[in-house]
Amino acid sequence: MNIIEVRQLHKTYKNLTAVEDVTFEVGEREIFGFLGPNGAGKSTTIKMLATLVRPTSGTAIIDGHDIVSQPNRVRQAIGLVFQETTLDERLTAAENLSFHGMLYNVEKRTLARRMAEVLEMVELSDRKDARVKTYSGGMKRRLEIARGLIHYPRVLFLDEPTVGLDPQTRNRIWTYIRELRDREKLTIFMTTHYMDEAEHCDRIAIIDHGRIVALDTPANLKKMVGGDLITLRTPFRKEVKRFVEEKFNLAVQEPGDYLLMEVAGGESFIPVLAGELGGRIHSISLHRPTLDDVFLKLTGRDIREESANGRGALRSHMRWRR
């Protein structure tokens, strides 16, 4: 069963089309990612699904409720964590959670149990009576995720959940997210513009200029780009090139003072190569295709630059060399 069904969702602001006829489904217990540069329409889509913004046309069904005609039911069924904090920093963590529970009509005894449970999960139990303004950025984000779960939502929306956080905190948040999916049968819908983060998703929709340009698992998306790239440094370039081409039937390029070849399953090819060539090589390095490469291939732009210019192709070459 699909817990989210989006049908031709469309949003136009005065003279700008933010989201253009977006259609997709998200299955139950899926971690679904929306990947794209800033301004691609990710936030607008999430706001429409969360009933904060009315679509110009089209609709979506979340947990059986229509976002346009049954907004309050949708709101009860989802949890939201925004990019910017929406905590009341002058209240304590526990107060923030209990107010949320009251607004979402969680019964008193259930609420007490649930608060303890979510605080435990995000490891904030011992700080629950401290005011939120004394929290670090990572703690606030964790508290916010905990708050979004208080009313037992079916779908948790995370808008750029780890933006501005240090790598350690990001990893921790990902641990919680997977734990939630497994333990609470929760579906996660998230937006991100970090490629490495999108790798954690079961499926990714790549969005650009308000349209979905690709939708698949991270592994399948990466297959679109091709195999792994192996860079080999050796003083005997000519000999080695001929040897590899004959022995493994591979096309070997010599773009500079190194050799470059594309293979499937690069990590198991390296030991074979090293065994054959022995001491004749200085170094071997492996570059696996990333979602960056997928985005680049689909849009002709580098997602990290967030602005299109004619040097995209050159940059991609520079990155191959790295």
Binding site: A50, T51, L52, N72, R73, R75, Q76, L80, F82, E84, T85, T86, L87, D88, E89, H100, L103, Y104, N105
Partner: peptide
């Protein structure tokens, strides 16, 4: 400071 949004998305009129 953002808190208004938490209130505005709650499932109450």
């Amino acid at each position: 400071f953002g808190f208004l949004r938490e209130v505005l998305v709650a499932p109450v009129p």
